[in-house]
Design a protein around this nucleic acid. Sequence first.
DNA 1: TTGAAAGCGCTAACAG
DNA 2: CTGTTAGCGCTTTCAA
Lengths: 330, 330
Amino acid sequence: MQNVTIGDVAKAAGVSPATVSRVLNANQGVADELRQRVVAAVDQLGYQPNSQARSLRTRATSVLGLIISDITNPFFPEIARGVEDAAHAAGFSVVLANTDEDLAKEQRYLEVAAAERMAGVVLAPASSAETDIGVLRSRGIPVVTVDRRLLGHPVDSVTVDNLAAAREATLYLVGTGCRRIGFVGGPLATTTAADRLAGYREGLAEAGLPFDPDLVAHGDYRIDGGRTASKHLLQLSPDALFVSNNLMTIGAITALDDAGLRHPHDIALVGFDDQTWQTGLLPPLTLVTQPTYELGKRAATALLDRIRTPEAPPNDVVLPATLAVHEPRR
Amino acid sequence: MQNVTIGDVAKAAGVSPATVSRVLNANQGVADELRQRVVAAVDQLGYQPNSQARSLRTRATSVLGLIISDITNPFFPEIARGVEDAAHAAGFSVVLANTDEDLAKEQRYLEVAAAERMAGVVLAPASSAETDIGVLRSRGIPVVTVDRRLLGHPVDSVTVDNLAAAREATLYLVGTGCRRIGFVGGPLATTTAADRLAGYREGLAEAGLPFDPDLVAHGDYRIDGGRTASKHLLQLSPDALFVSNNLMTIGAITALDDAGLRHPHDIALVGFDDQTWQTGLLPPLTLVTQPTYELGKRAATALLDRIRTPEAPPNDVVLPATLAVHEPRR
DNA sequence: TTGAAAGCGCTAACAG
DNA sequence: CTGTTAGCGCTTTCAA
């Protein structure tokens, strides 16, 4: 029972291995009687095809890579879930890897993907310019970037309209009367950070407000970075803080707390990314909300499409991010 | 450049494939000169061994499975991260799968793990009694359960002392003066739910309080389940609610809100699992805190150990869960 | 419609 | 220390 091979099944069914293979892969015609004998033998022996051997022969695996910065960042589990659901529905497995925004680590995982001959990779690149997908490229392994784009390469991507969303959020704050809006940005190596900053600037411009570089501080998309950046900005007594990702929003809340400020009474606060903790807790927060699960799901389906038709022109899917206003009285 | 094989490298280095293999696998002695020629050829050609071929030959893969209920439940990303960090440090990749506590889905993923000849599986079983790891067993694929145990089979496990933690939390509530403590439990098919319930009962007994079955309601470890169960219990006007997992704690908070009750003023609330949202938000909550990352990491190392020494006796690692008291004034 | 045979890329005996 | 050879389990021509 240890290791049933196709040969064992063939013997048990009184046919050749080729016939078993044909039955298993729904190939050609196989006489009904033989087919039934094979099927019977398969589940009598509990046979499961060795996918290594199959891949070796067919030069195709059914494994996708999912390379993100950190599954521990609450933004990513939904993405991962979307990717997996789509992948598994198509008979693919997904291998997860965390880069921690580290280019070297990212590169190592790209190499693993190449060595494993993965069918394709969904990637949230650590850097829009420095991430190098050459290892995959040269082996014909397709890549779809998710959440972030890769500049300079024609790669499929599934992202959100960060610029529009940030612009809208900024205009919303202006609309509630804010004039000195501090912006907590992300690592500029990512397109999300760049786009959100651009949206903030556009919003300001559109409202006729000046852009003050001092009111911008960059964090690392993590709690502490958001806290530090916010603390810094709070010294300049802004009347609002627009924080450009989920974890940094938590950091900002902490910074407000540290400074003895309360939102929405003392200062306006707009964050990014709806999360579980939003439910019924804290004073509700106005947030830019992304269709996270959808992002992952679309990325996976785009990748699967690409695997089927490698030559189609690259495609950028851009989903809307919407502002969810949750401000009580001020 | 498309598909460099070991033969190409051998040719380029002027040696045999076997020698290249020996260099790559740090086998035996290879003369320094040859070794250098091989190394040079490898990175000149950008060669990466085909892991399918290697696995086929060696009958060993470097892929671990991680089968959990839902990566979207904030409890699991930390586990996943712990597993991955340990796995990657040992040169293994990890394939993620979500069962949604569905036995059929779980079974399918176990079969995938078998078909892929994974080196081992870290599993949070959907049911302590009904989950059947026979597919893996019969193929000699080791399993370590994490967070939950599997009853009736000698399987390695890495869990937390749920009983002790629940008992402690219950005693804590009694200590603050509570007498009618409602318990929101999880799906009894899981050992965590059973153990936590047992701990609650022990705590009650130890405090000399009666166990009232009416004060127990079971949810499904998800937000809505927690909300419904809490709502139900609140009708019996308990003076405390002890909620046995993270998502249901959020549901409970919502239920309190719905009922116009405020913790800690109107009712005591103790939850499970520290989470990001705990930081600086809501009125702080007393929580049973688990070493989640550690749980994942230990599970992976236990699995890797088991892969190395399949015959060692099964081992149950039990980590402590601690009560983090965060109650302001009432 | 079915079977025989070759070969995917690698490693492990076995010679030398 | 190195090369030759066989074969892991599968699919896919090619013949019959």
